[in-house]
């Protein structure tokens, strides 16, 4: 059953945590997605998410905190891509090398894991709707840190992303901002993996902003649309998934994809 809304009023209180976590993630994903798109980092996000999955799986196997493992995996991947992949072409090949390696490690660790884990493959494809409190705290903290930092460096990061030559001439620390951005991206991916799963992180960190960029070129509106689209996808996805008792990721990705499709159509009609 894909939709089933009997007893929905009794289910809702149980998913308050998920909704809060989802909203925070959506704001974070919508904002950082703007820069993922303008800095041509979409594929890198995918690479980071596979290493995040590996980190989480190894942590699960070793009996450590899964979120911590996924953060470590993310940051290592973001660091490698940031240091070695300054140019887009080099970056793509590095990501393509890291991705299967991460996925392989992760699958190995999960296969070796003997414990009873509902979320064994949840790390890949997204959790069934349940985010427990310690996890929620992690997600909330990461989201707040990322959103705050992004808003603080919004102007120079935009300048550096869109007009690097003149930005450098005006004294914007291009290299420092690039490293900071990779750090934020690593954290954002680790947080997103907890909810939508490693394979579907792109739908949260890339698709909403990509959709927004189709319908406006006004910088502030891009951010507003991107966050709105992410909120619709995540909250809508959670609310629909609750009825079915299925992972939320297919719902999030489908809504996200539908919004992108609509934005494409809007763009076409304008021309």
């Amino acid at each position: 059953m894909i939709f089933n809304f009997t007893d929905y009023d009794q289910l809702l209180p149980l998913i308050t945590n998920s909704l809060i976590a989802g909203a925070l993630l959506a704001v974070m994903g919508g904002l950082i997605g703007v820069f993922v798109n303008t800095r041509d980092m979409s594929f890198a996000v995918h690479g980071i998410s596979e290493l995040s999955f590996a980190g989480a799986s190894i942590a699960l196997l070793a009996g450590m905190d899964v979120v911590l493992g996924s953060i470590l995996g993310s940051l290592i991947a973001a660091g490698i891509i940031g240091v070695m992949g300054a140019k887009a072409r080099e970056r793509n090949s590095i990501v393509a090398v890291l991705m299967p390696a991460g996925l392989g490690f992760g699958i190995l660790a999960i296969s070796l894991y003997q414990g009873q884990a509902v979320n064994k493959f949840g790390l890949l494809t997204g959790q069934i709707v349940s985010v427990d409190n310690p996890q929620l705290l992690w997600l909330a903290a990461i989201s707040v840190v990322i959103v705050t930092t992004l808003l603080l460096v919004w102007r120079p990061l935009t300048f550096a992303s869109l007009d690097p030559e003149v930005a450098a001439a005006r004294g914007v620390p291009i290299r420092g901002l690039s490293i900071l951005f990779m750090l934020l991206l690593g954290l954002a991916v680790a947080a997103s993996v907890q909810v939508v799963g490693a394979l579907l992180v792109l739908s949260l960190l890339v698709t909403p902003a990509a959709a927004a960029l189709r319908i406006t070129k006004i910088p502030a509106l891009v951010a507003v649309f991107s966050v709105s689209f992410a909120l619709i996808a995540v909250l809508g996805g959670i609310l629909l998934a609750v009825g079915a008792g299925l992972p939320i990721s297919p719902y999030v990705t489908t809504i996200s994809f539908a919004i992108y499709g609509i934005c494409r159509l809007v763009e076409l009609r304008r021309k």
């Binding site: 603080l152 102007r155 003149v166 930005a167 070129k217």
Partner: peptide, 21 residues
């Protein structure tokens, strides 16, 4: 590129400053 011609001008004035524009 999500930038209008007027945004290009503005960045020359305050693009290097912290904060949201």
């Amino acid at each position: 590129t999500p930038m209008r011609a007027r945004d290009l001008l503005r960045m020359g004035l305050d693009g290097h400053r912290f904060g949201f524009p």
